[in-house]
Amino acid sequence: MICANCGKDNAQRYTRKTEGREVTVLLCPSCYEALYPKQTNDFFTSFVRKVGGRARACPACGATQAGFRRTGLVGCAYCYTAFREELMPTIRYVQGKTRHEGKTPSEGAEEKYDFVRGLVNEQDTLRERLRRAEDEHDEARAEALRRELGEIDRMLSGGEGTR
């Protein structure tokens, strides 16, 4: 059967509901998919598919523009630097403006980050050791570890010596 759209001889019969009545169309599978895409309602995804650009990857996370076109999502913060030029039309379209107004992050987070991260990782190690001490019924050791964990907890929840 001849495809009513491209003329190739591999058409199939598809039955669809249009305006309340059933109609039969003769189309090849690829024309059928193009004319009746499954996700017709996701305008945003269709829109970002139109974003042009060369095939490159973000040096930080490896995300590609093809990935963005598929999902509408970037891979990491650096993607906005790597693909800025290509992303700007989309941003302008969905947001209208391209210059941030409003809140900014607090300063000094970088320094505290390493400190808190250190504490959180230490907590993890201590918890594991506590589990072992408890398994071995070493009550004295377990008690000491609980005290240490309590100390870290206090530091993390803003007690003395942290902020």
Binding site: V74, A77, Q95, T98, H100, P105, A109
Partner: peptide, 20 residues
């Protein structure tokens, strides 16, 4: 935000996975 450095850009503000 006190101890987590957020993804932030002077021009685009807080950076998110989806531009929306």
């Amino acid at each position: 935000s006190e101890s987590v450095p957020f993804a932030f850009d002077e021009e685009l503000g807080y950076l998110t996975a989806c531009p929306t």
